[in-house]
Design a protein around this nucleic acid. Structure first.
Lengths: 228, 228
DNA sequence: GCCATAATTAACCGAATGGTACAATGCAGT
DNA sequence: ACTGCATTGTACCATTCGGTTAATTATGGC
């Protein structure tokens, strides 16, 4: 889309956009650049810790443009948050568990969540920051109100099927189960710094992470199996 | 200690100290006041989000005193962090699992950790913030280098005993087990805001929390039992 | 009482920061 | 080429914030 811009070849840098020399109008690219770099900065430093200047400096634009497109720093933060959640939700849509037996589906879901969190540290850090702010900004954002019930629905189906097959215990709470999976996957990224400072880095090497992933799969599976 | 100060009765406010009227020297109380309020502020707003002025305003002292006692903002933050960890470690010392059979010991440990995290939200938030800062300040602090291996040792004993009794599976990793317990207990506090925004508040009511606690005890126990 | 020192106050400072006013420039339609 | 609007550049501003200087007051030892 926006193919009307004739791409000048001197696409100097890593930037996605192609506004060069004196200057060329390319608002969408500017907006996208700002959003991308703002995501990175807010993830790194939090809302209060981020300098608007730093965001502008990293791309070929001025502070002025940031305020032009996003109003103020908080507006930018909200936009970053919305985009981050949107992008994650999009990734989650990709996961297809249809047709899998309950146990396999659950294993796949846990592994997916664990890996996905690991690969998206920026998102985790944004969420950490938003929690420090008591979730006040995501609460303001209407696009985040449509509660992400898809995972819950998936888990409900899995639980029901598993219970019917007798491989899961009865009376499981899909919400609690999701909470449990989230907690283990999230903490792995969010608390790596302090945990490894105190207890060493063993769990965070590549092998450590594989073992940990197996461990939490094991843990979740054990918790849904019928009591012996 | 420091009983030399004659306590004047007009102890006006909530403050622990008793420096009144014009002014009376009571450095230890001032230091303690600063530390207490700084803990609260840093926990609420993070390092970058906290204003030194706000800390000073909440107690009967000036910004100048904060710099006098703690050098700079980061020095204060470090002091807060050290004290917070010290205090938590102290609380952990209270937990006595001696003489309990392995399963009971583990249940008690999990319940203790869950409750303890719940009761110390400020500490959790400090740790969250420190993780956003990649643990750089705790790494600077020598008092946090003495790795808190006590929990690991306890868990090792419990695991060994449980395995010997045949109530635990063989080859458990105490470190992974601790990680698991921490993750579930920590996430419960750290991510309450975002989680309840998206999935509702059910898990965070008093009943919800009790159920959740039972759930994670269950989860941990299931994960250590011999495979069926 | 005197004196060195520790604790506290008051005033001040430079730099950084979020944000804005306004002019200049590109662009699309006619 | 003209016009109207969107976009970008430049310069500026008020305030906030971390931190400091220097004077002032208490305290404890003699």
């Amino acid at each position: 889309m926006k193919s009307k811009l004739k791409k000048t070849m001197a696409d100097t840098a890593h930037q996605t956009q192609n506004r060069i020399r004196s200057w060329k109008q390319d608002p969408e690219a500017v907006r996208a650049d700002i959003l991308r770099e703002a995501t990175s900065e807010f993830a790194k430093n939090g809302l209060a810790g981020t300098r608007v200047k730093d965001i502008a400096d990293r791309i070929q634009t001025s502070r002025r443009m940031i305020f032009y497109y996003f109003g103020d720093k908080e507006g930018l933060y909200r936009a970053v948050l919305e985009e981050a959640y949107r992008s994650v939700r999009e990734a989650e849509e990709e996961l297809n568990l249809d047709g899998l037996p309950p146990l396999d589906a659950l294993v796949k879901l846990v592994e997916f969540t664990f890996d996905h969190h690991r690969r998206n540290e920026d998102f985790i850090r944004l969420v950490m920051n938003e929690n420090i702010l008591n979730g006040q900004y995501m609460r303001q954002s209407s696009s985040l109100h449509m509660t992400n019930t898809k995972v819950i629905k998936q888990l409900s189906r899995i639980c029901a099927a598993g219970e019917k097959d007798g491989v899961f215990r009865a009376g499981l709470s899909p919400l609690e189960l999701h909470w449990e999976i989230s907690a283990l996957s999230f903490f792995n990224v969010s608390n790596r710094a302090t945990f490894s400072n105190i207890f060493g880095n063993d769990l965070f090497t590549e092998e450590g992470q594989i073992a940990l992933r197996d461990h939490i799969v094991d843990c979740v599976i054990s918790s849904v199996r019928p009591k012996t």
